[in-house]
Structures are given as structure tokens and as C-alpha cells.
Computed example of a mutant assay.
Amino acid sequence: MTIPVIDFSKLDGEERAKTMAQIADGCEEWGFFQLVNHGVPVELLERVKRICSECYKLEREEGFNSSTPVKLLNDLVQVQSSEKLENVDWEDVFTLTDEDSEWPCKHPEFKETMTEYRHELKKLAEKVMEVMDENLGLPRGYIKKTFNGGEGLENQALFGTKVSHYPPCPHPEMVNGLRAHTDAGGVVLLFQDDKVKGLQILKNGEWIDVQPLPNSIVINTGDQIEVLSNGRYKSVWHRVQATPDSNRRSIATFYNPSLKATIAPAPELMDPVIKEAEKAYPKFVFGDYMSIYAKQKFLPKDPRFQAVGAM
């Protein structure tokens, strides 16, 4: 079983209706799908891969080797424990946002390349959200407008890029690459390693590999898309497995609501007969949800919705 692979270029041709249906199925039945021919230049993707890998090797590998996960794993091995480290991740990570005054990598090509990459990914994210609007029967631009929350910089959607590496782990059975979770925000666009596996999603109680596919962009929906769609598009549990002999690269770009944005099921998707107290999802401010998510990221998501609804 593999997640859907969709040719995004066919959205503008004779196979538009079929492609729209494929994306709808990816959102409703999987929560994850891969886009090929998505419009992001291959030359740029190759540059991103090279520069992020060089950044890790030259500037971050030494720091990871003396990090807390490495120390904790070494301690367990030294005492010959059979336990598993459940509260840490075998991951080196940093995040880029539009507000960054300093870039976390000194590589001479890093800032220019990642600025260009993020520009392309933002265009792709907004096009994907417009497809979701259409498939859900919502006005064009509904998700984007909701995420942007109003006028002014403080109300702009949060657009960030998380650059991760999962270095080789001598005891991958004893630690998670990244613990199982759903994503808090809106739409995630993942440029994952095209050779090293590790990402898995939970479907029908079974963990399924998200297969590496050169130059594809993996799309997944977060908790806020689940709320806006009134549950038609579920955020999906996923995790990263540690591996013994490879350094897996992962570049996840997220388009999230402004912290001040009000999130609720779209009125067009609500049953008017259902009373307020019986609705599956509450109305809330995204910043309030994030304050709960920060403490409960790796716990079941329904209590998060209940908790923010009670605020």
C-alpha cells in the first residue's frame, strides 16, 4: 500500500476533473499525497538538497554528536538497558520564517537558495489550498483568507520551513527519529529525502512508508484543515523512524493560520440542524490552540480540540 502520487500539471489540462478527484481522495482518504510536476524547478530542488546537506555536515553535525539525544542513548547502552527513549527525537532541526533577522546557516548560497525555494513553495501552497476550497465547495481563497485573519502584519498567515536531518543511529530500535503526532497547523509541503526512507503514516491501524520519490513534494493536512473542513479532511498521525546507516534529510514547509486567526468549521460545511453543543469542532483562536498543542503534541488530538473549546 502506497500513498497517492498525483501529476499536478494535469490540473490545467483535459484531465482537470480527474486530477481534482485524485486530490480530493488524497485529502479525504489519506491525509497525505505526493505531487509530481508541481512547477517547482528541478534545478532549485537539487540546489536545496545539496546546500542543506552541506549545511548539516559543515555546521551542525558536530553539535548533534554532543546533543542530549546522543548522550541519553549512550547512557542507556552503557547500562545495557532494554528501554526505549520515548521523550526525545533523534533529529537535528532548525526553522526559517519571514521574520528571521539572522539565518541559521552560514553557507554562502543558503539564504539566496532558501529564499527562492520558500517563494516557490508559498505559491504552490496557495494553489493547493485553492484546490481544497473548490473540492470542499467553498469560495475561492476561503482557506487563505481565514488563515490570514485580517489586515496588518500581525494577522498574516505563518509561513515557515523546518529543515531536519535524522543522522545514522547506532541503536534505532531504542529511539524515535520523530515521535508520532499530527501537525498543528494548515497545509504542510514536505520535500523529503529521495533515497532514505523513514517517514510513515498511520492508516487503518497500520504504519505505511511514504515512499521516496525524486523531486516530489509530499502534501499533508494539519489540525486546522480538519476543523475548517468539519472533519472531511482529517489530520493524520505520522512519525519518522531512526535508521542505522543513513542521514535522512527532510525539509517541511508549513502554511499555518496567524496566531490571531479565528478557526471554525466553514458554515457551508455545517449541518444547520446540529446544535452548538453537539458540534464536533469548536470555534477558537489559533494562538490558543498552539498553547495547548505545545504541551500535548504527542498525545491524542481530540482532547486538544476539547480543551481549546473550553477556553
Rank of each mutant, 00 (worst) to 15 (best):
N74V: 02
L85A: 03
T97H: 12
L58R: 03
E116S: 15
G63W: 04
D92M: 13
M132S: 15
E130M: 14
V42G: 09
E99P: 05
V88H: 10
R47E: 02
H119D: 13
K127V: 07
V48T: 06
S101T: 14
C55V: 10
E120P: 06
W103G: 03
E99M: 02
V77L: 14
C105N: 10
A125D: 00
L85V: 15
H38I: 06
V48K: 03
H119T: 13
V93M: 13
T95F: 05
K123P: 08
Q34E: 11
P41K: 11
G39Q: 06
K49N: 07
Q78E: 14
E130W: 10
T68Y: 08
L45Y: 02
E120I: 04
S82Q: 09
D98K: 11
V70Q: 04
L85M: 12
R50W: 10
H119C: 10
K84E: 04
E116H: 14
F32M: 02
D133S: 14
K57E: 09
V48P: 01
V131H: 12
C52L: 07
L35K: 03
L72Y: 03
V42W: 04
L35Q: 01
F64V: 00
L121H: 10
Q34H: 05
L96A: 05
E126C: 15
E59K: 01
E120Y: 10
